[in-house]
C-alpha cells in the first residue's frame, strides 16, 4: 500500500473574523489538536467549530455545500493562496495531509470590492449572477427547440466549449487577482457560448452586455498575470480571456449592437 497511515496534527489557525459587512474585522488565533491527515480542510474547520461551540464562542461562518468540488460554494484564501496550495482543487477537496504538525495556517475570505464580506469567511458573490443575467444564456424558450441532432457540433468544438463551461463560479479568479478582475469567469461563459452554433445569434450582444455589467460591478481590469488560471479549481484557461477580448472588440467595432 502506498497510503501513508494517517497522522494527527496540532495546528495554529489564524482566521479572519468579522461579525458583519460594516463591522471591523481581524485575524483571530485558535489552536486545534489531533487533526487527522485524512480530514478535508473543511472537516478541520468543523472540528474547530465544535470546539468553539463547546466553549461558548460563535463558530466561524464559512460557505460550503457539496464538499466534492463541483458546486463552487466553498473557497477561502489559505496562507495567501485561493483554495490553498493544490492546483485544480477546491477548498473542500484539499486534505490535511498537505500540512505538517505545528503549522500555522492563515485563513482569509475572498477579498474584492465586488465581493463584500457577509460574515467571517463568507462573501457576497451575487455580482457573478448579475453578469450571467446580462447575457450569459441562449434565448430559447422551453418547447422551442429543434431536434437535437439537427445542430451538429464537431467533437473538438464540443470539447473546447465543455472546457470553458466547466467553470464552477467559485470566485477564486477574482480573489487571487491583484486587480480583483473577473475576466476569467466572464471569458469562460463567453467562450463557451461563442464556440457553439447555438450561441451565434446573440454572440455580439452577449459579450457587450456581460462586459458592461462586469465593469459596472467594480471588478478590476486584466493585466495578464495568469494568477487566476493558476488558482482556478476547474482549470479554466487564460486563452479564454484572449477570446473574450477578441469577441468584445469584434462586437464593439463591427456589430450593429
Amino acid at each position: 500500500m502506498n497510503h501513508v497511515a494517517s497522522k494527527n496534527l496540532n495546528l495554529t489557525l489564524k482566521i479572519w473574523r468579522q461579525a458583519g459587512p460594516k463591522q471591523p474585522g481581524g485575524l483571530k488565533t485558535y489552536q486545534v489538536r489531533g487533526i487527522s491527515t485524512d480530514m478535508s480542510f473543511l472537516e478541520m474547520l468543523d472540528v474547530l467549530n465544535e470546539q468553539l461551540i463547546a466553549s461558548g464562542e460563535e463558530p466561524v461562518a464559512f460557505d460550503h455545500d457539496c464538499r466534492e468540488g463541483i458546486c463552487g460554494t466553498c473557497g477561502v484564501v489559505i496562507n495567501g493562496q485561493a483554495h490553498g496550495p493544490d492546483s485544480g482543487t477546491t477548498t473542500c477537496q484539499l486534505h490535511m495531509r498537505r500540512f505538517h504538525d505545528g503549522d500555522t495556517i492563515v485563513i482569509e475570505p475572498w477579498l474584492a470590492k465586488a465581493f463584500p464580506i457577509v460574515r467571517d469567511l463568507i462573501v457576497d458573490r451575487s455580482a457573478f449572477d448579475r453578469i450571467i443575467q446580462a447575457g450569459g444564456f441562449v434565448s430559447v424558450n422551453t418547447g422551442n427547440a429543434p431536434e437535437a441532432n439537427t445542430t451538429l457540433v464537431p467533437h473538438h468544438v464540443q470539447q473546447d466549449a465543455m472546457n470553458a463551461a466547466a467553470c464552477i463560479g467559485c470566485g477564486a479568479c477574482v480573489a487571487s487577482c491583484k486587480n480583483a478582475s473577473a475576466m476569467l469567469f466572464v471569458s469562460a461563459k463567453v467562450s463557451h457560448l461563442a464556440s457553439l452554433p447555438q450561441g451565434q445569434a446573440e454572440r455580439s450582444k452577449r459579450v457587450l452586455n456581460m462586459v458592461a455589467t462586469m465593469d459596472a460591478e467594480h471588478f478590476g481590469n486584466c493585466t495578464n498575470t495568469g494568477e487566476c488560471e493558476a488558482a482556478c479549481p476547474a482549470k479554466i484557461k487564460l486563452s479564454n480571456i484572449a477570446q473574450l477580448n477578441r469577441e468584445y472588440m469584434k462586437a464593439a467595432l463591427l456589430s450593429k449592437e
Binding site: Q158, A165, Q198
Partner: peptide, 22 residues
Amino acid sequence: TSIIDQCVAQGVPFAREYGGTL
C-alpha cells in the same frame, strides 16, 4: 427526448461524435 432537444438548444455541451452528432 424533448429534454435533450431543449438542453442542446440552450448550449449544453453534450459529448459528440467526430461528425458532430450526439
